[in-house]
Design a binder for these strands. Sequence first.
DNA 1: ATGTAC
Length: 485
Amino acid sequence: MTQQQAKELVRKVEENIFEVPIDFQEGMRVPGRIFVSDKLMNDLEVNTLRQVANVAMLPGIRKYSMAMPDAHFGYGFPIGGVAAFDAHEGIISPGGVGFDINCGVRIIRTDMEAGEVRPRISELMDELFKAVPSGVGSKSRLRVSGSELDDAFNYGAQWAVESGYGVEADIEHCEDGGFMDAADPLKVGDKARKRGKPQFGTLGSGNHFLEIQEVDKIYDPEIAKVYGIREGTITIMIHCGSRGAGHQICTDYLRVMEQASRKYGIDLPDKQLACAPADSREGQDYFKAMAAGANYAWANRQVITHWVRETFERFFGRDADELGMDLVYDVAHNVAKLEEHEIDGEKKSVYVHRKGATRAFPAGHKDIPPAYRSVGQPVLIPGSMGTPSYILHGGEGAMELTFGSACHGAGRVMGRGEAKRKFSGEVLEKQLAEMGITVRATHPSMLAEEAPEVYKSSSEVVNVVHELNIARKVVRVKPIGVAKG
DNA sequence: ATGTAC
């Protein structure tokens, strides 16, 4: 089948919804659903389409194998993929979560006016770059003992706050209260522990960043008010994950899952989809280790938040309280969760795999903090370097269409190697400076990898979920200072 | 994403 023929099999169901029919590929148990505009569909790689079809072949998958508008080719599952598997008849797969377990985003609001920060942004970025270590293999100035590491694996952001990194309100404003109860540090191997131990409070590299932003546009004033966000003020966004710890957990369990797939006779169209039955020992071991990795990431973002507050306090000579530096929300966009969803009129327990997809629960959902329950959870969509980020609120469409999920960002359209050849970090830095954006990076070449041109348009991606009522636009923020690994 | 290849 040629690429063109493969794409022609995909059928437009309605505006922004395309279906990969069940006969697209032999062995599919459910159809695929791709939530994209016509333009994004046109740009979608056939290999990504095939990955959607491959996921549809896995046991116990419910309703559809889904891809969000920012979907692109990933390890086994597409990035931007969402798949729910029955808690008993289904499977759990590390490939459906990704290497960076609980890669995620948080945003901190402030009462500071952009005009107060802009003139000093260069020095502020220098201070933040010093306070928060970044780059591949970067080490933290925080030293944790083995038992503290266990506590972090068990209790995530809650551990960090109890250890003095943050305030109680931070916990309430994290998805899942900043930790997954399922975590078991005993399921995390020595190598993952060893890699994770010195990396608490580090940003990492790639598309991870720490950004100072200005609230640029308000789409929904009432909900913006509920989230505590006012036009023209400064927000701070942190995008990072579980560093070497999560990466090693994924690597370790991929090996376990390869054997488990054989043991349980699961037919895999792609070895990278290695998985185990959800209620098998292997499946549960991975889930407990993954949850520990997710908790590590929440603790990591919490420690970074504390250092950002400290840096602001020193730099502006005022308390974080006085500056109004409250955490708005923190979301995980690489994770699997056991959730209840209505399937064909019945409540069912499913393991929802969100790999490059953000939970987007609507108003009234029990898992949303009380302060936000009347309007739906904040859905944080980071832009690529130099482009706007968005805060949306979860909508009813998410429960109807996507197992309570939305997109997670812009989505790459170009590989890192190609980007490095095509763009110069030094030129980009100058271009961004002309746009009023101050960048700090460990190396200019990494700026090239993250050039805005290597990503889809974040506004185009966000518009799709907005139009489908999966998550609706509340606020747009634009960067004025970016620190990258 | 990642001690960017065991």
